[in-house]
Design a protein around this nucleic acid. Structure first.
Length: 399
RNA sequence: GGUGAGGUAGUCAAGUGGCCAACGACGGCGGACUGUAAAUCCGCUCCCUACGGGUUCAUAGGUUCGACUCCUAUCCUCACCA
């Protein structure tokens, strides 16, 4: 039993510090029914979660299955500083209203994965506000500037003379202090958080807590391109709130190699099942397309519903595999005859008439499934199905 | 504060008086192919009812028949020195 739980908890992890502690906690749960706390911090700087965040959430959910109580920590205080991790410039500071708004949409999204009854949402301003200047100084005395500058992102910024606000130095300390206050047993975060996570251990010791938290680090999920980390600013993300069709399509667009990584970090399938699929694909008995479809279905169903996921699949097959027309097409209408290039522009499927002409010349424009060859074509009264390329559609009614 | 270099299309980056709507790369778009929105190959890539016209190379003026290219001023960026 314990071994099972351990396996599931270890799955996909990049690094675990103090695995023994985790084992002991699990043992105490199975033998004495004692629960323990697992802390994860979330920075309410953006309102939307993407699959990269859900890697952590799913790990938290795994802990919940085995006696863990999640401390879902909202960095309501620290958001005002901005985490310097991986950043090359001082971050913009958020206003209180922004933070409140972000938190609300954040938690609803998170509870699609987490068990709400085993989760405590905590806000770090509740105790950090009261820390006071004295407490702050005491806290800061636990760390030397030299150690702080050892951090890659800080030293790079320092070397390149990019400004570092002193307040940013406080960030890891405050995050670590959260662990002191909450007396967390385990903290999890991304590998890029290593410094901050270890600070929790160091501070717990400094503040004479009996046990130091174990630290579990998850790898950073690659984005759709398979190279850079998934992030909104890079545009290579799958958002938790993405429409079913988009979500399904985005998963299918990843490469076959990346697909296995997503399986490991995002799927609820067991590692054995995944290994079996992998062998089957390698010896040719299973088609990789099928495997990827299953993944897309699983992920889409998690955030929407099984029915919606299946609809999305059908829709995808229809449009891409069989090059048929999608179900929902935006409709436009206009008065009087209209020039084809102008019509495409009006329907927002071409940015300019020049681009429209080019695409017509190249045979990329279709009306009612028929290729358009005449770039001077006038559309007279009637209804038309306009198409540019394989996936831009519009319906136009000419009155 | 001083000195030097530079600002060119979505990005990077050529072009140093007419051959420039401006080489090239990436990206993007279209086509072929494919299980795929991957890879590969081909084409396109400022706007305009368009074999022609219009507006571009930080901004504003100027020189010239003609300027992205020369001059002047302004704004911004970067490097070195202090």
């Amino acid at each position: 039993m314990i071994q099972n739980a351990l396996n599931e908890i270890n799955r996909g992890c990049a690094e675990i510090i103090d695995n023994e502690r985790i084992e002991k906690l699990l043992k105490a749960y199975y033998e004495e029914g004692k629960t323990y706390t697992v802390k994860a911090g979330f920075d309410p700087t953006a309102p939307d979660l993407h699959l990269g965040h859900t890697v952590l959430l799913q790990k938290l959910a795994a802990f919940q299955k085995y006696g863990g109580r999640v401390q879902f920590l909202i960095g309501s205080f620290t958001a005002m500083i901005g985490d310097p991790t991986g950043k090359s410039a001082t971050r913009k500071v958020l206003t209180q209203e922004d933070i409140v708004k972000n938190i609300a949409s954040y938690t609803t999204q998170a509870f699609k994965i987490l068990d709400e009854s085993k989760t405590d949402i905590v806000y770090n301003n509740e105790w950090l506000d009261d820390l006071g200047a004295g407490g702050m100084l005491q806290l800061a005395s636990n760390l030397t500037v030299a150690r702080m500058l050892e951090r890659d992102d800080f030293s790079k910024r320092y070397a390149s003379q990019t400004p570092i606000a002193v307040s940013e130095f406080m960030y890891p300390l405050l995050q670590g202090y959260d662990s002191v206050h909450l007396q967390s047993d385990i903290e999890i975060g991304g590998t890029d958080q290593k410094f901050n996570l270890l600070m929790g251990r160091q501070l717990q010791k400094a503040y004479n807590l009996k046990k130091q938290q174990a630290v579990l680090m998850m790898p950073i999920l690659e984005g759709l391109d398979g190279v850079q980390k998934m992030s909104k600013s890079l545009g290579n993300y799958i958002g938790v709130t993405d429409a079913p069709n988009d979500m399904f399509g985005k998963v299918l667009s990843i490469s076959d190699t990346l697909m296995w990584r997503y399986y490991e970090l995002l799927s609820t399938k067991t590692l054995e099942e995944i290994a079996q699929m992998k062998t089957a694909v390698e010896d040719g008995s299973l088609h990789p397309k099928k495997v990827k479809e299953d993944l897309a279905l699983e992920i889409t169903a998690r955030f929407h519903s099984e029915t919606q996921a299946n609809t999305a699949k059908e829709e995808f097959d229809k449009v891409h595999a069989k090059s048929q027309i999608p179900t929902d097409i935006e409709e436009f209408s206009c008065e009087g005859a209209i020039w084809i290039a102008k019509a495409l522009q009006e329907c927002n499927i071409e940015p300019s008439t020049s681009q429209a002409r080019r695409d017509i010349k190249q045979g990329g424009v279709k009306i009612n499934q028929e290729k358009v060859t005449d770039e001077k074509l006038q559309l007279t009264q009637g209804e038309y199905l306009l198409q540019v390329g394989k996936r831009k559609f519009a319906k136009l009614k000419v009155n």
